[in-house]
Design a protein around this nucleic acid. Structure first.
Ligand SMILES: [Mn+2]
Ligand SMILES: [Mn+2]
Ligand SMILES: [Mn+2]
Ligand SMILES: [Mn+2]
Lengths: 218, 218
DNA sequence: AATAATTTTTAGGCAAGACTAAAAATTATT
DNA sequence: AATAATTTTTAGTCTTGCCTAAAAATTATT
């Protein structure tokens, strides 16, 4: 059984490992968790003792299979709770993260499986991120950043990269969201912005925004 | 904002104060929380500093109005989560306590009110205990211990005193539960047991059991 | 009223998880 | 290759929440 703090470290390392292919550095973990490198060193020593990860001084860390399964399970809980909050309790997609961050640590063999069933076995969370199954398997959806699309390519919005409240509320304001049809009408070389048509409506989108929207091409 | 540990102390003191009318002793708290008296002394000093309770050395403690409101709010969360677990996630009344013990500490302004609405503003939890409103007001139901009823008195089962899994599963086995009609057919002076009719079925009930069932007389 | 038993508090310590400051190792730059 | 910059670790401290053992206060018993 892991403490809340340990679980937050495990989850963070898992997320960082999904991006980089090398060992995850002390500093990267510290930055994500808004803590100090020295605190991270303490914790990764402990997690190494607990066989969650492999650690050699100055070399960064790598999750073991056990560590990966543990992480996937925490993420499964986090995302199922997010679905619950949005679908049953009228939360918006920019409000759920903070609460799910707490709920993901609730320990109960029965709770999560029943919640999963109650929600109808959802495949993804309100941000389009896939929900791991009980064994930690994560269905990978084929998706591309909007910023990588060429002129006249189109598809459906299936996820976001940045899940901050600010960005999500910005998308709401622009009426951009999961399931929306998006077509690239033109790319502006000057500032790398995009002219797009979203559900019939034309608009200009900055490169920064395009870099945080995932599209499933059609 | 209170820590989980602080919240558990506050809730426990509130429950103890509901029984006794004097100040709550260090030992009573320690016993309920399965901790040591010295730990309790440490904590009540801290809670006294935080204006949750009034403490004079060797005199026991009394919750302030603020402390009572805080306690009622934790209990509100605990009981609403219990309702959720039973009504939505197929938990039985003997399974909910442990999980609710964790869920009651989740901090979210929005979460509990939405949960309350989602559940249809329930008035009591799966054990028949009343759910405090947002201001901490606790509706008091008129109820009597089955053991205090006289021969030929009758009513409806509205609550239990002992909420241990063992007792609740025993009641399930005997098909005794909330909402059941109970009539005292006879009292046996030899062992203070009760001959009762529960939803039409006659059975004998020990004094110990009768001491843990609440009846609303009719 | 004195003594015994019980309760409560104090004193001192420990583990978890954070921090700062300094040392050591690694990586980048000249 | 030597030096500078950066990253990481170590050493030492702090707070929270718990513990044991001993001292102090209260309550019960003779
Ligand atoms: Mn978390
Ligand atoms: Mn999410
Ligand atoms: Mn609790
Ligand atoms: Mn209950």
């Amino acid at each position: 059984m892991f403490s809340q703090s340990e679980e937050n470290y495990i989850k963070t390392i898992y997320h960082l490992a999904a991006i980089s292919d090398k060992g995850i550095s002390t500093n990267a973990i510290a930055k994500k968790l808004e803590t100090k490198a020295s605190s991270v060193t303490d914790m990764i020593k402990k997690l190494s003792d607990k066989k969650v990860l492999v650690y050699k001084k100055y070399q960064g860390v790598t999750l073991t299979d056990f560590g990966k399964r543990t992480a996937a399970n925490i993420i499964r809980k986090h995302r199922l709770w997010e679905v619950f909050l949005v679908q049953k309790l009228n939360f918006t997609w920019d409000e759920v993260h903070e609460v799910a961050e707490q709920l993901e640590h609730i320990k109960s063999p029965k709770l999560i499986d029943e919640l999963d069933a109650f929600l109808g076995y959802p495949k993804s969370d309100p941000h389009g991120d896939p929900i791991p199954d009980k064994d930690g398997n994560l269905p990978q959806i084929q998706k591309s950043l909007l910023s990588t699309l060429e002129k006249s390519e189109k598809g459906v919005c299936v996820g976001v990269n940045d899940t901050s409240s600010e960005f999500l509320r910005f998308l709401d304001k622009q009426e951009i969201g999961l399931g929306k049809n998006i077509e690239v009408l033109d790319k502006e070389p000057f500032d790398d912005s995009f002219l797009v048509k979203i559900n019939g409506k034309e608009m200009t989108i900055s490169n920064k925004v395009a870099n945080n929207i995932y599209i499933q091409k059609s």
